[in-house]
Design a protein around this nucleic acid. Structure first.
Ligand SMILES: [Mn+2]
Ligand SMILES: [Mn+2]
Ligand SMILES: [Mn+2]
Ligand SMILES: [Mn+2]
Lengths: 150, 150
DNA sequence: GCAAAAAGTTAGCTTCGGCTAATAATCATC
DNA sequence: GATGATTATTAGCCGAAGCTAACTTTTTGC
């Protein structure tokens, strides 16, 4: 093996390592918004169906306790996704509404895709709830195209 | 609307809420093992390729700092997935090896599936790294079948 | 309109998974 | 085999996201 080859393979290896690290970094970044995404999506749905989004309804649907919801809503408010008044229901900001819409759209595409693959609705819903947060724009487009075509 | 209808729709609604909550609970549970899964998978790969898994190599590939690796390895050891001696490389336990094998298998199926859908390799690797942790056995089987067939 | 139930909040605890700074051990090189 | 570079560990910080217990406010039903 020449020195040149050695250098080349070392550099190629370095690029591979770097690119792998970037994948993990990207996943960690996606992870950071998962909870916020699920909350705004659910809040939008509750407002649409019930006229309002009450913490108690968020809690039962998310399968967490009321204090957990309270704390999370605090973060959402801090991040400009919702507004709220003490002991009152929650409202989405413009930004929150935009995020909710985007999340609902993504959720539906992923769900439809899994269903069109032949998955049962229960499992499809369960898997979609997790997968939706880790699907790039490109993948989403491929999912949508597949469901359409099939 | 009769009382009966009212009761029925209320109970159906309650079941829907319950099932939704279970989906979120399932996703949260999957989330709890994501880091461990990625680590054992990587450790197995490093041992296979380099003969040993050094914290520094784990760190560069995961895109985190050395202390983060040290702390995570502590949890993996506590959970019986690895063994280690101070200032030495890491080894997988029987259980760790089993988990690594399972994760590698799942990772490959998800990756191949995304590639066979027509996704570019870079994005496929990135998305697979996140999606793999949220794919049920059933979905995995469908993914595998699809890649096979196409 | 009051009492009980339901809903919401607050305080305080836990674990996880990230970080920096400082220290310690190992390895490589001369 | 000393020493400088690399690698590993420890201590200590932080925020997210869960929980229980205790308290307050609002809503409901008589
Ligand atoms: Mn989700
Ligand atoms: Mn969703
Ligand atoms: Mn992964
Ligand atoms: Mn993986």
């Amino acid at each position: 093996m020449t020195d040149d080859e050695n250098l080349d393979s070392t550099e190629a290896e370095a690029r591979a390592v770097e690119s792998r690290a970037e994948a993990f970094i990207g996943v960690r970044e996606a992870r950071r918004s998962e909870v916020a995404e699920d909350y705004v999506e659910l809040i939008a749905e509750l407002i649409h169906e019930n006229g309002e989004a009450r913490p108690v309804d968020i809690a039962t649907r998310m399968g967490v306790t009321a204090p957990t919801v309270a704390k999370t809503l605090g973060r959402l408010a801090r991040d400009g996704l919702i507004t709220r008044a003490k002991y009152r229901s929650v409202f989405l900001t413009e930004e929150g509404r935009a995020l909710a819409k985007e999340c609902r759209h993504r959720h539906e595409i992923v769900l439809r895709f899994l269903l069109s693959l032949g998955l049962d609705p229960e499992t499809a819903e369960r898997d979609a709830e997790g997968i939706e947060h880790h699907v790039s724009e490109r993948t989403l487009a491929l999912f949508a195209a597949f469901s359409q075509r099939s």
